[in-house]
Design a protein around this nucleic acid. Structure first.
Lengths: 122, 122
DNA sequence: TCTTGACTTAGAGTAAACTCTAAGTATTAT
DNA sequence: ATAATACTTAGAGTTTACTCTAAGTCAAGA
């Protein structure tokens, strides 16, 4: 399947502006038809979804750019990409633990408030 | 115990600029001595730590402001605070799950790369 | 006395990641 | 033939959360 930018925008949940911006930044390479109109493929979809996973885990655009650049350079950059992903993974795990702890704190606070409110209103 | 802004800054890991900024924004109320110099207390420390937990879980300054404002208004705002915390908690849990999924994707990718690199280099 | 560390207001600067506008052109579907 | 959708460049604007600067004052300790 192929998609126009309008269709693709809806599918991946990024605005057309953002898709063009990502392309300009080198995050994604997109084919064009004879009239220079972008033709997005399912491969593009998988790639964007991968990028969005990196983004979801807090990777900066800058690092995503490096990753994409290496991706476009082919197999000889595998090691670099792997190193980047591993380093990123470490940060994600740390961040996850931090959030988990803060969530625990939040739960304690909610419990506290529920008891207080309970005492006051029931 | 009480602390000057310089001491407090080191303890809580926020710059003096940021501490003054947070105070100006109404996130924290700080006592002053006769010379108008800020005196931070252990209570302030607990409060900042709570705020930082909210921040760690992605709460915006704007919501933290509302929370702090209600906190300064006393018990009659318990329900509002509880509602805010519960709403926030829901978002955090969702976000956590999203990160967890993206981490899984990241792990798959790393496995893939390790096999590829393994095939190529060993 | 002089350095250190505190204070004030007011506003400027920074970085990230978009987000949009303008102004003009081209193609396709109804 | 006209509306919808696409394209371009170039740059301006937005939001968030700081982060810093200037310019001046004040008070305590060595």
């Amino acid at each position: 399947m192929t998609y126009s930018i309008g269709e693709f925008s809806k599918i991946v949940g990024l605005s057309e502006h953002t898709l063009r911006f990502y392309e300009k930044e080198g995050l994604i390479k997109v084919n064009r038809d004879d009239n220079n109109v972008r033709i997005y493929s399912d491969e593009n979809k998988l790639w964007i979804e991968s990028l969005l996973h990196l983004k979801n885990t807090g990777m900066s655009l800058k690092d995503m750019k490096r990753f994409a650049m290496w991706g476009h350079m082919g197999d000889k950059t595998m090691e670099e990409r792997l190193a980047l992903l591993k380093k990123h993974r470490k940060k994600v795990v740390e961040e996850l633990e931090k959030i988990r702890q803060s969530l625990e704190h939040l739960d304690n606070k909610i419990n506290f408030y529920e008891n207080e409110v309970g005492d006051c209103f029931s």
